[in-house]
Design a protein around this nucleic acid. Sequence first.
DNA 1: TATTGTTATACTCTATAACTATA
DNA 2: TATAGTTATAGAGTATAACAATA
Lengths: 150, 150
Amino acid sequence: MNAVAGDGVRPDLAALVVPLGRALMAAEQPVLAEHGLTMWGYAVLSHLDERPLRTQTALAEAIHADKTRIIAVLDDLESRGLLNRRPDPQDRRARLLSLTPEGRRLRDAVRAAVQNGEERLLGRLPVADREAFLRSLITLYEISQGRPAR
Amino acid sequence: MNAVAGDGVRPDLAALVVPLGRALMAAEQPVLAEHGLTMWGYAVLSHLDERPLRTQTALAEAIHADKTRIIAVLDDLESRGLLNRRPDPQDRRARLLSLTPEGRRLRDAVRAAVQNGEERLLGRLPVADREAFLRSLITLYEISQGRPAR
DNA sequence: TATTGTTATACTCTATAACTATA
DNA sequence: TATAGTTATAGAGTATAACAATA
């Protein structure tokens, strides 16, 4: 038996959450690759929601990336017509970021495929636990990101 | 509001789990540093349970590390008298790994401190959700590591 | 002078390949 | 010849520092 099975000592949360996260990311990879997206590219598309963002720095912070890291990602997505990056007329240092219709379509398709895979995993939880798990996960996520739980 | 708050689209599991894992690890750091442990050092101590392991390669696999990655870690822990690493008399290529009493003490102390912090976080969940969350997390972890759920 | 975006550089972490010793 | 452990090297990913444009 391994330490997780339960010999009185519960495993560290981090020792459960981190490997689970790695596995989820690994499961995403083939789906992303099919659509020619890297993880960072998908993160950008996912975060660039309906309304545009005003600076690249803000976007970088939102997805926990360095501002220099996402530049090549934005270059790629822009060149593929998935997002627009135009100088803000109000402040021409900043770049207004927004998804193109194709970008939105791709994001939705990939998200659906990713979540479809995740649903299969979640489906193995007892229905009773499942909702509580998702709710708790969201709560802990919010707290961990410094946002107060409701 | 952000995408997590709930505008009909649930966030990807990975987008919740991975950042949560990062935050949990970050929260562990100060505790580990206090005891002069790196994350890998703690992973080794945590996994080296009561009974010894027969090879370093097995240990490396168990903690999802490359066999070459843990060598410096083992060197350090051994030099500090926290673990024993002696050639297996049966097959002198292999190294039998076991914790010393001090190693076990340190592991227990650090684990207690780490889990104490985690309990504070878990304490912010409704009691009703909390057990379901832990149970689900362990189940999903096991599945993600290729072990069949019960 | 401060800020946005960018480029070039350096650094950290990790895996690969090559070596020693045992079998 | 195959395997366990080790060392040295190369590679990927990341952040830091320096720069150009704009305010």
